[in-house]
Design a protein around this nucleic acid. Structure first.
Ligand code: SF4
Length: 253
RNA sequence: GGCGGC
DNA sequence: GCCGCCAACATA
């Protein structure tokens, strides 16, 4: 029964990791049809739009969680978010087709599909380098997100640590963190140390010690990559000890 | 969103 | 009203 328990935890963990399909099962030919212009690390697994909702929970930074939620709730994203979130998704490996489908599935709940591709199709293809100059766009860094194109009152893009009133920020963080953790983070935010605020957020949500990440978060995609790396490591550790007594004690959250 | 074309 | 084109930059 220890073993059974271990397998259950493992299953949950794997759902959060994107390395679900065995690498060995995906020969290089699995990538046919897709194009990688250097920014996508090799060896990574293809991400589909159906995996996003799971990945958001553990591996997306606050800014992206914000926009993803808005997308699911309002079935729409304003220009700024479409770009910031769209490029981030592209950065984590979501293909053009998947991104296009994901947005259409959602937007199309409020507008006719023909209006969708007339209104948003071009820009999405453009981000993937399929229009105009045909150069794939790269995601914005925290600095870029914080410095340029500030969100207006109705926008949902930007950086929560920088663009949310501390009241709202605390409220948002409260749903996934302890009170004292929320305080520490908002303290950094109020002190305009957004990178530290985000790094602490990462450490707390990944159950690391403060400073345990060993680096500052300066890019949303870095946040994602580091998160996936940790989850992968824990899956590996789990497999190595599964069946053993250690498994029971291990907190995989 | 901005710029541009009719 | 119809349409095209652009911006970015962590990173082992
Ligand atoms: S710090 Fe960078 S990653 Fe963290 S929320 Fe703000 S923008 Fe997103």
């Amino acid at each position: 029964m220890y073993i059974q328990r271990a397998y259950k935890h493992l299953a949950i963990l794997e759902e959060e990791g994107r390395l679900l399909p065995r690498l060995s099962l995906l020969a290089n030919n699995a990538y046919s049809g897709k194009e990688y212009n250097g920014e996508t690390t090799d060896g990574q697994i293809i991400i589909t739009r159906h995996m996003i909702d799971k990945l958001v929970v553990r591996s997306f930074p606050p800014c992206m969680k914000q926009m993803h939620k808005h997308l699911r709730v309002n079935h729409h994203l304003k220009y700024g978010a479409r770009r910031q979130y769209g490029l981030f998704l592209k950065g984590i490996g979501l293909s053009l087709d998947e991104a296009m489908a994901m947005m259409r599935d959602e937007f199309t709940k409020k507008i006719p599909s023909d209006k969708f591709d007339k209104e948003y199709g071009y820009n999405i293809r453009y981000m993937y380098g399929k229009e105009g100059r045909r150069v794939p766009q790269t995601a914005m860094s925290c600095a870029g997100i914080i410095l340029r194109n500030p969100p207006s009152a109705v926008d949902c893009h930007g950086c929560p640590f920088r663009h949310c009133e501390t009241g709202l920020l605390k409220q948002k963080l409260a749903s996934e963190l302890k009170k004292d953790q929320v305080e520490k983070i908002t303290q950094f935010a109020e002190n305009n140390q957004y990178d530290k605020a985000c790094t602490r957020y990462f450490e707390f949500t990944h159950h690391l010690e403060e400073g345990g990440l060993g680096q500052l978060i300066t890019h949303p995609n870095q946040f994602f990559e580091e998160s996936q790396k940790i989850i992968a490591e824990r899956i590996a550790a789990k497999k190595a000890t599964q069946g053993g007594a250690e498994v029971e004690k291990m907190d995989t959250q």
